[in-house]
Write a protein that binds this DNA or RNA. Structure first.
Lengths: 216, 216
DNA sequence: AATACATTTTGATATTTTTCACAAAGTTAT
DNA sequence: ATAACTTTGTGAAAAATATCAAAATGTATT
């Protein structure tokens, strides 16, 4: 294992879930060993990149052989902290919050939806995917009680900052923000923004250059 | 304007929607002029980065003054092709497809949801956000008919590749893929993957290092 | 047992991206 | 009109990231 203090780049961290997912697919196919070459082919990434990324955390492969799929899944899972079963909460049970609450892939990664919050009296008290919908005002009680450490913000942009503030006050350590706005959070809270407009806009950008009919 | 043939980095393209969105907020506040300094402060990015990014496309600012908000919005909008009103289709009206169909931010960016597709007889024929839900088999007819150029894939991973194939055959030019699988598409089709597991996994990674109780 | 082959690990190199620093150009104050 | 600010645009430097190449190690073959 390498020095804990070298900083791993965000690009590397973002590739690890890709390796993890692909390896689990590989495992389901019954393969026990895979080379960086073959893994790279399946992900669409160079084998050097994969080996370099992994080497930042340790030596997981076997020269002349490749990587033992099961071991590598376990190792990457531990690197990503996916063996811990994090409790998460979704704030804002609108269309997107509802969809995320029903997204099955999260539980398979070790994330356990423990609570959702909203203010709409029409849905507070009901359940989504068998998880209770609490009123926002119960956040300060429910979050510590259920040991929730990650909050998902799917409220309209104008409420996102105050929701973030309350989540943090309630003890949350990580925020996954879907509201299209810049949130201010203290340094010890990990913030990840999921900006859905970027994906579509970038498709638009590339198509504009490919398709005729415009100056760009 | 710069040489059309220099390649703009993906990182730059991904920042433009951020500039665009923030500028529109600034405009709503009534500001007519903004400096790269202030814009950077609001986005959480250095002003040099903003100026460098913009300079790749032209000279949009005024020395000693800043950027005229309205002009810069128009210019970035044209760079991103957001002035074109793209017709898009969503394939897979499950929880996520449903949520995206109801996501209001897209229409404000010039994306027009023209059709959705599914195979579930329980929903085919109905409407989502006032847009018809067609059967998948109507894709080949509806997509050219409605001049749809961008397809959003929100079907389970195991069907994603065949959906992509059919979309492409039907004439789609860009694909926004939410299925957690690597899609193979021809070079002239722009593919953008939206991998929702990356965001959560990276929060898990950082929290694992911050919180006690594990070897990493 | 020796040779050929496969594959990881890793230091070195190349490339890409960001930051720096300053000239150029515009504005404001005296 | 001049001087002091302000802010952009951009070449140069620095930093970060990815690729290359070769040593190390293990496996398969003769």
């Amino acid at each position: 294992m390498k020095d804990q203090h070298i900083v791993i780049s965000k690009a590397t961290i973002d590739r690890l879930p890709l390796y993890f997912r692909t390896l689990r697919n590989v495992q389901e196919e019954g393969l026990e060993i895979i080379s960086s070459e073959e893994l790279g082919r399946r992900i669409g990434i160079t084998p050097e990149q994969i080996r370099k990324d992994l080497s930042l955390f340790g030596e997981f492969g076997k020269k002349g052989v490749g990587y033992y799929v099961r071991d590598l899944i376990r190792n990457i899972g531990e690197i990503l902290g996916l063996h811990r079963n994090w409790n998460i909460a979704i704030v804002g049970v609108g269309h997107l919050g509802w969809a995320l609450a029903n997204y099955q892939n999260f539980s398979s990664l070790g994330f356990n939806l423990a609570a959702t919050f909203d203010v709409d009296p029409g849905i507070v008290g009901a359940r989504v995917n068998d998880v209770p919908i609490y009123h926002l005002d119960e956040m300060e009680r429910v979050i510590p009680e259920k040991h929730i450490v990650i909050g998902v913000i799917t409220v309209p942009a104008e409420f996102a900052q105050q929701v973030a503030n309350r989540l943090i006050k309630a003890g949350i350590r990580g925020i996954w923000n879907f509201a299209p706005i810049k949130l201010n959070v203290p340094d010890d809270v990990k913030l990840v923004n999921e900006d859905l407009s970027i994906g579509l806009s970038s498709i638009s950008y590339y198509l504009s250059r490919q398709l005729p009919g415009d100056k760009y």
